[in-house]
Amino acid sequence: MPTQTMLGREIHVDDEGFLTEFDEWDEKLGSELAKNIDIEMTDRHWEVVRFLRKDFQEKGETATTRRVDTAGGFPVKLQFELFPKKPAKKMAYIAGLPKPHGCV
């Protein structure tokens, strides 16, 4: 498993760059990850990311766009606006979570 240095500390990531250790993430790191993929974080972005973190803790897996809509209350259309083109993967990346595995 590769590691990389971000914000002066060592971070574990998978081959694509998604964090593999839940506890290595904090919001400062989230901001850095967002910068890596050219997302400018607003309060709305953070609300989505915080939901994903909380949901992962409860369910043990990354929420899909469907779940972020139905359980989180963030409409799919909004998710596409905030995290264009590939919302599920981008949200997961910024939130320091694995890619979602659900089909829907």
Binding site: T5, M6, E10, V13, E16, I37, K86, Y93
Partner: peptide, 15 residues
């Protein structure tokens, strides 16, 4: 297990 200074960033291919 080499630490890299250049972060690995997923290829979201936004173009």
């Amino acid at each position: 297990m080499a630490a890299s200074n250049k972060p690995i960033v997923p290829k979201f291919d936004d173009g």
